[in-house]
Amino acid sequence: MEFLTILQILDSTVRLATPLLLACLAGLYSERAGVFDIGLEGKMLVAAFFAAAIAYTSGSVWVGLLAGVAASMVLAVLHGIASITFRGNQLISGVAINFLAAGLAVVIAQTWFAQGGRTPQLPSDARFGNIVLPGAESTIRGIAQQGPLGQVYSELISGHSILVYLALAMVPLTWWVLYRTRFGLRLRAVGENPAAVDTAGISVVGLRFAAVMIAGVLCGIAGAYLSTALSAGFVKDMSAGRGFIALAALIFAKWRPWYALSACLLFGFFDAVGNRYQNIQLGEFVVPVQFMQALPYILVVIVLAGLVGKAIPPRAGGEPYVKER
């Protein structure tokens, strides 16, 4: 395989890993605080739609991003009200949010644009462009003429949208927040033993809402990335299970930020390979593309089965907090 081809696959890995990473970190905040979130998919989807729709109508991708984040946060609040305020079942709430998003996005798209539940194609100034880092080549021919190091710089490191760099920056930031700040200490505590937090005089509800809202913001950015950076507009079901792959990555990473990055890059790589090659020839064996698509899910089942290390979720995860006498 040619060096440049490998670079192109890795470049595409980074692009495809970005929404996974943002959603995965979203899930990390929420679940570390003890609120399961299987509604990552729905929040991403609704953000993808509003980001594209508002970017299209306003002409500004940044306004679109804000709209996407706002929409995602509305669903996050809903999840908070159901699972924190009213102590409902967090899983059922997540399921409801996924369907609500899938339905509403298409219904509103149809009402606003009447194009069968999609937004119009976004013009380039209503999308996130690729940033060419100083000294990098941006044309295919230019890159092809560079040496290997230059190719790595131009193809892999340079030329992504700002959201890619933002997502990558979120990893150390999340680590820092979690392990180096008061907020992080309290967040981890409330996911492990909310009673300890409550008796220390800190609001369990407040902390959990904060975590759920952060998850809303990150899912919003992830969704906006899908429709305004990775592609040019919203189409029905465009999140395509990425919320669940992000959830899978989160379990794979055992709820830790740096591992989340690795897991998302791995799953992004599967996706990139699957996109580039329909079937992969491994000697006598042909690996069908469907197997590559299913691989993240299969890996998660293997991890959950405890075949490669045990994934222990935050101990208070999934349980609404009820004060005891």
């Binding site: 008061r182 907020f183 505590a189 009673a195 300890a196 220390a200 800190i202």
Partner: peptide, 27 residues
């Protein structure tokens, strides 16, 4: 309390400061 309100996988010092930290930074 009768049932201790401790975070089991935190250290002693982390449990002691929880809710009584000085400032936003942990160290």
């Amino acid at each position: 309390h009768q049932h201790f309100k401790l975070v089991e996988n935190f250290t002693v010092v982390e449990n002691v400061i929880l809710g009584a930290e000085n400032g936003a930074m942990l160290r």
